[in-house]
């Protein structure tokens, strides 16, 4: 009986099935080749960090993942299903929470409205549009300024808002593009702690682009990019000083 079950259910999601699979991705800006045959995999519940110097294509990679840029060839699979033909908003509703570089908080909406917009990514919109208490536990600073305009916040506060907004949609994969860029060190530590807590409590996967070494060390796995190609990967525990010297702009 159990034998029969095992063979009859080949599609049952296995924990070893990757949450995100990027295969032979090629992206161009006009005629310039930006991403060259990029491959990478993010497993469920893992935090993966993408490192590399400025201009090697890390943000391009994430934008292609969100569907903001169209790849010329290659495939993207989320939880085993190809998402290459999906539009950006469909990808968000399939469970990719995106925190872009530069935060992109909607400037003339209040913090509360910005957070409520995060609910758009849920497959079914809840009747009651409330902000769960967990969000304020992660980012207490947001609770005190719900009625202020998003554009009036400081950079660090905007970053916290952008992460909180992505979490409102209960994503399966959280994509963070340089969350600590240009932010004061104390807030960097807060954001790091929040991301770590998110992974511990919700078990979602995280794909992170980061230059901040301390934050990179939190990840389980790293991929290093150079000139649009993946040139190294491995567990972050094995991230040697040589590799850091070569791929991080620090």
């Amino acid at each position: 009986m159990s034998y029969a079950n095992a063979t009859l259910e080949p599609t049952k999601p296995d924990t070893d099935l990757p949450m995100l699979e990027v295969k032979d991705l090629n992206v161009y800006y006009g005629e310039s080749h930006i991403l060259r045959n990029v491959n990478m995999t993010v497993f469920p519940g893992k935090m993966v960090c993408l490192i590399g110097r400025n201009g090697v294509g890390k943000t391009t990679m994430l934008k292609t993942l969100m569907g903001i840029l169209k790849p010329r060839s290659g495939n993207l699979k989320l939880d085993g299903h190809s998402i290459i033909a999906r539009t950006t908003d469909q990808r968000a509703r399939l469970g990719i929470g995106y925190v872009p570089q530069g935060r992109e908080v909607i400037p003339r909406l209040t913090i509360k409205e910005n957070l409520i917009l995060g609910l758009e990514a849920l497959p079914e919109r809840p009747k009651k549009q409330e902000i769960p208490e967990e969000i304020f536990e992660l980012f207490p600073v947001l609770k005190t300024m719900l009625s202020r305009m998003g554009g009036d916040l400081s950079g660090g506060q905007q970053q916290q808002l952008a992460i909180a907004r992505a979490l409102m949609g209960r994503p399966r994969l959280l994509v963070l593009d340089e969350p600590t860029e240009g932010i004061q060190p104390s807030i960097v530590l807060e954001i790091e702690a929040a991301v770590r807590r998110i992974i511990e409590t919700t078990g979602i996967s995280v794909l992170l682009v980061e230059q901040h070494l301390h934050f990179v060390r939190q990840a389980d796995w790293y991929y290093a990019m150079q000139k649009g190609s993946m040139v190294a990967s491995g567990p972050t525990s094995q991230l040697s000083n040589d590799v850091i010297q070569q791929f991080l702009a620090v």
């Binding site: 569907g67 908003d89 917009l117």
Partner: peptide, 21 residues
Amino acid sequence: LRIRAVTQNRTMSACLGIPTK
């Protein structure tokens, strides 16, 4: 709310799952 969000930042609104079309 969706209309105001798309007015101000179309790309990010799409990234949040708002059906911009």
